[in-house]
């Protein structure tokens, strides 16, 4: 019998026996006989309570089998759990890498131009086992409310360019593209800059 089930049954038995004992005591006539009958009832109850303990003492409790039945240790596939955890961890690593990369590109762009917001989306090789992991496939930059400025090499300051001059604007965007392309080793055609 299942050990836990056995203990449960035993407790139930004790409850039933208690009820029985009370009813038996009620049935005893109130006379000199009362104490004799009480003794016999008491002995019977003792036997009923002790008997299950005897079973435990004789057979012993097989803790291992109980644990296996209760917690299904064998059914838990630790290997698959580990693999799943590894996949989750890799996802987190890739996500963090992409986030930092995007922030770095954003900072690079903000060094050159003055924009209220820069959104960078990059796609990279996400396979951690691949030796080319982290290689950037393409970069998409969205600039909003841009005020152009250029680094002046001589004074090490920034100059605001007249945005109406289309050629200069294109020039600056091309510079940014080249910069990113060189720094991250991304083909130029895979870098797109969108302006809003």
């Amino acid at each position: 019998m299942h050990d836990v089930e056995m203990v449960k049954n035993w407790i139930l038995q004790i409850a039933y026996i208690s009820i029985l004992a009370i009813v038996f005591e009620l049935l005893i006539p109130s006379s000199n006989m009362k104490k004799y009958v009480k003794v016999v009832i008491g002995l019977t109850i003792m036997i009923a309570i002790i008997n299950p303990i005897l079973g435990f003492l004789r057979n012993g409790v097989d803790i291992n089998s109980t644990l296996e039945k209760e917690y299904n240790y064998n059914n838990i596939d630790i290997n698959s759990m580990t693999k799943q955890a590894e996949v989750e961890r890799n996802k987190l690593i890739v996500a963090e890498y992409k986030k930092r990369l995007n922030e770095q590109i954003k900072e690079k762009i903000l060094d050159v131009i003055d924009a209220s917001d820069v959104e960078v989306e990059s796609s990279i090789n996400e396979d951690l086992n691949d030796k080319n992991f982290g290689v950037i496939k393409n970069v998409h930059v969205v600039l909003s409310n841009v005020k152009y400025k250029m680094v002046n090499d001589k004074n090490d300051g920034k100059i605001i360019i007249d945005t109406s001059k289309f050629d200069e604007k294109e020039q600056i965007l091309d510079d940014i593209k080249n910069d990113i392309s060189k720094f991250y080793n991304v083909p130029l055609k895979n870098i797109t800059i969108e302006e809003r």
Binding site: Q13, I28, M33, T44, I47, A48
Partner: peptide, 29 residues
């Protein structure tokens, strides 16, 4: 009481004995 005794796991012989003893006590009284 017999039904409860069956559930309580007490051997039927003991329950019968208790009933007998209670009966004897009554008759003697």
């Amino acid at each position: 009481l017999n039904t409860i005794a069956d559930k309580s796991g007490i051997n039927n012989i003991y329950v019968k004995t208790i009933f007998k003893i209670i009966g004897i006590a009554y008759i003697a009284e």
